[in-house]
Amino acid sequence: MTTLISFDIDGTLEVGDPPGCITLDMVRAAKASGCIIGSCSDRTVSNQQRIWETAGIAMEFTVLKHQLDAVKEQFPAEDYYHIGDTDLDRQYAERNGFHFLLPDVDVVQLWENGN
């Protein structure tokens, strides 16, 4: 079963502005577990790519916040998740058939539980 996880950056990842609670190690763990991972942010694509290059994490996609539809089209998966900190993240996620998760303790728990 393939799971795709899309990460917002600002307010969601530890490298965001403001920093969020999702660590880069959590992103690495998701990738290591076989998830399709990428980022979906208002930052320019080039800026997102630079973040991942610096972190040494190969992402399958780096898209703008309103482009989750293209991600779904490009990557077949059983489950689609978008983790973001704003109402807009929720809107785009739900509009495009992604499960929406806030970057909070419950999400961190998923990693700790090995899910």
């Binding site: 502005d17 208002d42 320019t44 694509v45 080039s46 800026n47 703008l64 916040k65 309103h66």
Partner: peptide
Amino acid sequence: NHGIEPISVEDYKTSRY
């Protein structure tokens, strides 16, 4: 001071509304 990179025409034209 915060590493905001210049944007391109493509960045502008593909940005969200």
